[in-house]
């Protein structure tokens, strides 16, 4: 059995009906994302069909099947941010970051995700890049941030 899952065994007993979601959450937290291999392992452990687990994981917003980019952009798509004067055009951002909403760019530098309310409705538009929150972001400012991130070479 996979090490990761083995560690979780005491907390998520096989016979508990509600172990699955918690396990997937823990796996994502530890591994960063879900893979087919890990889902198969969970299925084997919990005696559940793989397709059921895959169905569950795709239903919820939390789970993803690819790693995050080096810079993970979260764009608030809440009502307030959407309505603020300079609401962020997700299409433009997709073009700039070379990725789709919910995807990752080929060079694995940027990933983009539009999320529901981040709880800072009075300061929209809100953009979260990794753990840093930017408020009242104007398109120009966002462009500047992206340019500076693109220029960074490590």
């Amino acid at each position: 059995m996979n090490e990761l899952i083995e560690k979780m065994v005491p907390r998520f007993p096989v016979n508990k009906k509600d172990s699955l979601l918690g396990m997937l959450q823990e796996i994502q937290k530890a591994h960063g994302f879900l893979t087919e291999e890990l889902i198969r392992e969970v299925a084997q452990y919990l005696h559940l069909p793989v397709n059921k687990i895959y169905g569950l994981a795709t239903f919820y917003d939390q789970f993803r099947f690819h790693a995050l980019g080096k810079y993970h952009f979260q764009i608030c798509n809440g009502t307030s941010c959407h309505l603020s004067e300079s609401s962020i055009n997700i299409k433009d951002l997709e073009n700039q970051l070379y990725t789709k909403d919910g995807g990752i760019s080929r060079d694995r530098k940027f990933s983009l995700e539009s999320v529901s309310c981040m709880g800072s409705c009075e300061q929209g538009p809100v953009v979260k890049i990794n753990a840093t929150v930017f408020t009242n972001v104007s398109p120009d400012e966002l462009n500047r941030i992206i340019r500076s991130l693109k220029d960074k070479t490590e």
């Binding site: 509600d18 172990s19 699955l20 979601l21 569950l56 919820y60």
Partner: peptide
């Protein structure tokens, strides 16, 4: 921890989600 689905505000779907179902 809710895994993030808007419909889970409804009580029966909330329960389904707690039972590790869709």
């Amino acid at each position: 921890k809710g895994a993030g689905a808007f419909v889970c505000g409804e009580e029966t779907s909330l329960i389904a989600s707690m039972e590790s179902q869709r």
